[in-house]
Design a protein around this nucleic acid. Structure first.
Lengths: 162, 162
DNA sequence: ATAAATTAATTGACATATGCAACTAATTTT
DNA sequence: AAAATTAGTTGCATATGTCAATTAATTTAT
C-alpha cells in the first residue's frame, strides 16, 4: 500500500496563504468547523443526552434568559425563522428538556420552560465546552484573547448594521 | 398597535454578558451568521449566478489549488464527507461552473475542472466578499486585525490536534 | 358589538447540508 | 486469478432554513 502524501490534507490547507486576503468567512468558518467537530465528538461521548449544537444553543439561551420566553421571541433573539426554532423546540420537548406552557392571559403565547433534566443537560454541555475553550486558548495571552473578542464583536455589530 | 420593546431583540442580545464566559462557538457563530447573511444577500443581488456559501467555497478552493483536484481530495481538504462534496459538485456542474474530466491513466479518478464561467463567478464573489470585508474591518486597527487572525489560526490548529 | 386586522404558533413544501453505509467500477496487491 | 483497495456514486436519515399558508386568539377600528 503506497501512502499518497498528497492526500494528507487539511494540515497543509491554506497554511502558506496570506490569511488577510482570504475570504473572512472561510478563515473563520474553518476555525469554527474544527472547533465544533471536537465539541460534537466530546458531547456525543460524554453527555447522557447528546444534542446538536443548535439544540444546545437554544436550550442554553432559554436557560440564561432573565424572563420567560415564547417562540416568537426566541426566533427573534436567535435571528432565525420561527419554524426553524419551532422544530428545534419540538425535538427538545420530545427529549423532555423543554415544555410549552400556555400564557393564561394570552392563550396564543406559549412559554418555553426548561425542565430540570434540561438544566442538567445544558450544564453538562457547558462544562464540556468550557473545558475545550480552556484548551484552545492555551498559548494565547489574555490581551490577545481580549482583542479577539473585541474584533468578533465589532464585526458582528458592523454586519448587523448593513 | 403597541410596540413591544421587549421584542426588539438582537440589539440587546448578549450585550451585557461577559463574552469571555460564553460558549466560544456561540459568540463566533453569531458573528459568522450576521456576516454570512449580508454576504448571501449581496451575492443574490449582485451576482449573475448566485451560489450558496458552501458552493462558493468549493469553487474557490478548486480555483486556487495549484494542481488539479479529484473529489476524494476535495472532501479531504474541506474536512467533509465525499457525498457532501459530490452533491455540491453536481450543482456546480449543472450550472456549468465545473466539469468532471476522467484521468486517462486511472479511470476511477475524475478531475474537477473550473470552467471559464466558473472563474468569472468566483471572481465576482471574491470582489463582493473583499468589499464587505473592508467595510467590516473599518474602525479596527491593523494590529487588532493581525491579532484576530493569529488567534483564529491558533484555535484552528489547536482544535485540529484534538 | 361586530367586523377587520394583527399576532403567535403551527404546518407543508422545498432547498441545502452533512453523514453513514452500501454499491459499482477500476486498479492494485497478494 | 482472487482478494483488497480506491474513487465515485446512490440511498437513506437527520438537521437546518426559508417561504407561504393556516388556525386560533386577541386587539383595533367602525
Amino acid at each position: 500500500m503506497s501512502i499518497n502524501l498528497f492526500y494528507l490534507c487539511r494540515q497543509n490547507n491554506f497554511k502558506n496563504m496570506e490569511q488577510d486576503n482570504l475570504p473572512l468567512g472561510m478563515v473563520v468558518g474553518q476555525m469554527m468547523k474544527e472547533m465544533i467537530n471536537v465539541l460534537k465528538k466530546r458531547d456525543a461521548e460524554q453527555a447522557e443526552v447528546p444534542l446538536t449544537i443548535e439544540q444546545h444553543a437554544v436550550l442554553h439561551i432559554l436557560n440564561e434568559r432573565k424572563s420567560d420566553v415564547i417562540l416568537k421571541e426566541m426566533s427573534c433573539v436567535m435571528g432565525k425563522n420561527k419554524s426553524s426554532i419551532l422544530r428545534i423546540i419540538d425535538v427538545l420537548e420530545v427529549k423532555e428538556l423543554v415544555r410549552r406552557a400556555v400564557d393564561t392571559k394570552d392563550r396564543r403565547k406559549k412559554y418555553l420552560m426548561v425542565t430540570k433534566k434540561g438544566k442538567q443537560v445544558i450544564e453538562k454541555f457547558l462544562k464540556i465546552e468550557a473545558e475545550l475553550r480552556t484548551e484552545l486558548k492555551k498559548g494565547l495571552t489574555k490581551k490577545e484573547i481580549k482583542i479577539f473578542y473585541k474584533v468578533v464583536n465589532h464585526i458582528k455589530m458592523k454586519a448587523e448594521q448593513l
